[in-house]
Amino acid sequence: QEARVPGCYLHPINVTVRSERQGPCRGSHVAQACVGYCESSAFPSRHSVRAASGFQHNITSVSRCCTISRLQKVKVELQCPGGRQEQLEIFTARACQCDMCRLSRY
């Protein structure tokens, strides 16, 4: 179990890959994700912000989120029927940092 400490760190995850390109091939790989606790706050908006939003945005939120700052491609070997092998490229995180939150997910 990971400790709940401030910051944004690499975290291993199991990835299972399937391909139907040459029959049912399968492989698994340990990739890295980024997981952590980054600072955020919410407070009353300044007058200029309130006025600009038609007095709708009475709260201002300033945030950072745990993000992947460096992504790398790695090759995964897939096992196919009859002992054949296939290669597939997947992404893994190489570095993490507290940075911009993705607003699309809000």
């Binding site: 975290h11 890959v17 994700a33 980024c34 997981v35 952590g36 600072e39 919410a42 997947i90 939150c101």
Partner: peptide, 14 residues
């Protein structure tokens, strides 16, 4: 007001 650190993550997908 509010302040803190929330759990956030990003993971690679296929």
């Amino acid at each position: 007001a509010c302040w803190g650190r929330c759990e956030t993550w990003e993971k690679p997908i296929l």
